[in-house]
Simulated assay, not measured.
Amino acid sequence: MKNLWNSAIGLLLVNGALLGLTLPFGKMAGQAGVAPMLWAFVISFGAGGVLLCALLARGQRIALNAHKLRYFVVTATISYAIPNLLLLSAIPHLGAGYTGIMFTLSPVITLVLSILLGVRRPNGLGIAGIAVGFVGAAMVALTRGEAVQPAELFWVIVGLLVPVSLAAGNIYRSYDWPADAGPIELAAGSHLASAVILLTAIVTVGGGLSSFGALAGEPVLVLAQVAAASTMFAVFFRLQAVGGPVYLSQIGYVAAAVGLISGTFFLGERYQALTWIGAAIVTVGVFMTTRAQNGKA
């Protein structure tokens, strides 16, 4: 476990796989009548609550100050509340696998922002790997979702906004990371802030507290989502510290693979040959960027 905590590639695989589970879980929740905003709340409240309990059990606490409060609110908004809401809204129209492939665009946008802001950037092989991944993602985007029901352009655009928000979050978390805070504390505080934002939206414009009744019929799914989210975010911020924002963004490649496989084999989704070819090219890109990161370490 200690080796995993210090391994960029190990943390990458764990984070990406658990993030990928959000895609089939989100589609199943939507099919059960759970609104996207409510499921996004489940993710943030579940992860934040479990991580806070873990902190308290270890005798630690979240020491609030103005800097941390700002960090929690901004991170909650651009890294969790907005992208999760967009993601879960797009899944019913694009499919879990296709929506997951949108994650692969995050490294490209993260790289551009990193260069503009002077944050850590990859070497030549890393840039080449990201470019290869982008070519594969572009091929996938052209197919517009499942083969049997191509989505409207609007939902493709919604899906594309997910990596934009994620990339902004990747950069911000490194840029404004509180010096006196640990990864579990930041994860717990940010998710609880996201839960407050989403709960406020649910009460005001998302159907009110009565909408929570939809969760009663899916206790196993709720528990599975909370377990996956809390485990993922326990190591998410550690990956940020070990690998940096551009390397962190590579979790989208792993998540896309998990989403595409689970959507195809467990949810009955069907995709065009171009989608699979693009996904294969994306896989080549992530191996290149991983090799570049290992060479730089």
Rank of each mutant, 00 (worst) to 15 (best):
N3F: 08
L4I: 14
S7G: 00
A8P: 09
I9L: 12
N15M: 09
G16V: 14
L19F: 11
T22K: 06
L23H: 09
P24L: 05
P24Q: 03
Q31Y: 05
G33P: 04
V34T: 04
W39N: 00
A40W: 00
S44F: 10
G46H: 00
A47R: 01
V50I: 13
V50N: 01
L55H: 03
L55K: 07
A57G: 06
A57R: 15
G59A: 06
A66M: 13
F72R: 07
F72G: 01
V73K: 14
V74C: 13
V74F: 09
A76P: 08
A76W: 09
T77Q: 01
I78M: 01
S79G: 14
Y80F: 15
A81K: 11
P83L: 07
N84G: 02
L86A: 14
L86E: 12
L87W: 02
A90D: 02
L94I: 07
G95Y: 03
G95Q: 07
A96M: 03
T99R: 02
G100M: 02
T104V: 12
T104Q: 05
L111N: 13
L111W: 09
S114R: 08
L116D: 03
L117V: 12
G118L: 04
P122T: 09
P122G: 04
G129A: 04
G136H: 14
V140I: 14
L142D: 13
L142I: 15
R144H: 10
R144G: 03
G145N: 11
A147T: 07
V148N: 12
Q149W: 09
A151M: 02
L153P: 11
V156H: 08
V162P: 03
V164W: 03
L166F: 14
G169F: 06
G169N: 02
Y172L: 08
R173E: 03
Y175K: 15
D176I: 11
A181R: 04
A181H: 07
A181C: 09
A181F: 01
G182E: 04
P183T: 13
I184C: 11
I184W: 13
G189R: 05
L192W: 10
L192P: 04
V196L: 15
T200I: 13
T200K: 08
T200W: 11
A201V: 10
A201L: 03
V205T: 13
G208A: 03
S210V: 15
S211Q: 14
F212N: 00
A214K: 10
G217R: 02
G217I: 05
P219T: 12
V226G: 09
V226R: 09
A227E: 12
A229K: 00
A234P: 01
F236T: 03
F237H: 14
F237M: 12
F237K: 05
R238P: 10
L239D: 10
L239M: 11
A241W: 10
A241I: 15
G243W: 09
V246C: 09
Y247T: 12
L248N: 08
S249V: 07
I251P: 01
A255Q: 04
A257D: 10
L260K: 01
L260E: 06
L260H: 04
I261R: 11
I261L: 15
S262N: 09
T264E: 07
F266W: 15
L267T: 12
G268Q: 12
E269V: 08
Y271L: 10
Y271E: 07
Y271G: 05
Y271P: 12
Y271M: 05
A273H: 08
A273L: 12
L274C: 01
G278M: 10
A279M: 08
I281L: 13
G285V: 05
F287D: 07
A292M: 12
Q293H: 14
